[in-house]
Amino acid sequence: MATSTGKIDFHYQGATYQTWYKLVGNVRSTKAGVRPLIALHGGPGVSHSYMTPHADLLASHGIPVVLYDQIGVGQSSHRKDAPKEFWTVELFMDELESLLNHFGISGDYDLIGHSWGGMLAGNFAAARHPAGLKHLIITNTLASMALWEESTAGLVKQLPQNLQDIIRKHEKDGTTDAPEYQEAMMVFYKQHVCRLEPWPQDLTVSFAAMEEDPTVYHTMLGPSEFTITGTLKTWTIVDKLPTIKCPTLMMNSVFDEAQDVCVLPFFKYIPQVKWVQFANSSHVPFFEERERYMKVVGNFLTKV
């Protein structure tokens, strides 16, 4: 499997940053009806590593895949000193455009976004109306942060009462870095982020990258997946969904953090949309039901 890595200069607000990427396959040599797929990782601020299963699509369907670390995490530029106003959806949409232009594929490509990456991908499709975007995939993500909070709050209420009490106490006291809070959070994650035991190495690498520099995650999201205090707290794309014109695949899972309540607007308001749900997965079906996931994604991208 041919792979290459590199860094792209990304110019933003008078400064130059670098975006690290990994290309699997060759964006210039695709068969008819197949386009490069750009994969947007989640977090925000969790590195690309856990998205590497999508490289399977090259072998199974001939689809070249571009993975990258968004600015602020992994091997791309970091800005620990940046004010919170720096970390915006516009920043990451500009970075995505920079990536597309670097590879010369802005006129013909597909896009997949997972979790926060799905928010970014949907926002990009709805706000910038990119003519070259042929297929959009939004997986295990949300249409508004208010609906995400409703989804995760319902899941937290299913935890044992002692864990709920620990979570509430430390969030009230502002001590979410306490070991018992972290342990309670991991119980939630092992039920609704990834149900495999142990977690795949690529997933642990991505979370380790976030822990090494949590600037983006804490600034835009908050201390955990279910406690939203960051700049994305009021984010919504619901009113923009009817403007997404390309064929769209949306996916979530039965045990997902992204329960049906927070993905339903995609199905209701995107004009050309298909909804697939995974019965035996949580937030990362590309690990938990890898074979079926790749078949669903590959067939959508090559047969629509």
Rank of each mutant, 00 (worst) to 15 (best):
T229H: 02
S47A: 11
Q182F: 06
I166K: 04
G118I: 11
F92A: 14
L111W: 01
C194Q: 15
H54V: 14
T234Y: 11
L40Y: 04
M220E: 11
Q191L: 11
V216T: 01
T16L: 07
E183R: 09
L142S: 07
T243F: 15
T176C: 10
H54R: 01
P83N: 06
E211K: 13
Q13P: 04
H129C: 10
L133Q: 01
M210S: 12
D9E: 03
T204A: 14
L96F: 08
C194G: 09
Q164Y: 06
F267C: 13
M185F: 09
R79H: 12
P223A: 03
A55G: 00
M185I: 09
N123H: 15
F287R: 03
L96S: 10
F86H: 13
A59E: 02
Q161G: 06
F286W: 07
K84R: 09
P64Y: 00
Y217C: 07
P271Q: 09
H11V: 14
L147P: 06
I63P: 00
M119I: 13
E180L: 12
E85R: 14
T139S: 15
V238F: 09
G62R: 02
P200G: 10
T5P: 00
Q164V: 03
F207L: 15
P200A: 10
R128I: 12
D239S: 13
A121E: 05
F300M: 04
S106M: 09
E225M: 13
A184I: 06
A2L: 03
S253L: 14
V66N: 01
V304Y: 11
P271K: 10
E212G: 11
G42T: 01
A39N: 02
V73I: 14
D239Y: 12
A2F: 02
G104M: 13
M250S: 13
A131P: 04
D108C: 00
V66P: 01
Y12R: 15
G43R: 04
S224P: 02
S106L: 04
K240Q: 15
V66D: 00
D239K: 15
E288C: 09
Y17I: 12
I138Y: 00
G33I: 00
G43K: 03
H283Y: 14
M220S: 07
G113P: 07
S281G: 10
D177P: 10
P198V: 15
I244M: 13
A146P: 06
D165T: 06
W87P: 02
L37D: 02
R79L: 11
Q182V: 12
K7D: 05
T19E: 05
I270Q: 06
M51E: 02
A125P: 15
V284C: 10
H192W: 12
H170V: 11
G25Y: 01
A131K: 09
Y217S: 07
H61R: 02
V297D: 05
H218V: 10
T243H: 15
V193C: 11
T152P: 14
S60Q: 04
N299K: 03
D108S: 10
S224G: 07
S60D: 01
P214A: 13
L136W: 08
L58R: 00
S98I: 13
T243A: 15
M1G: 05
I228P: 14
N26R: 02
L111Q: 00
Q201V: 08
Y17Q: 12
D81F: 11
E183H: 11
N26Y: 05
A208H: 08
V273E: 08
I270D: 07
H102I: 03
T229Q: 14
K274P: 01
V263H: 13
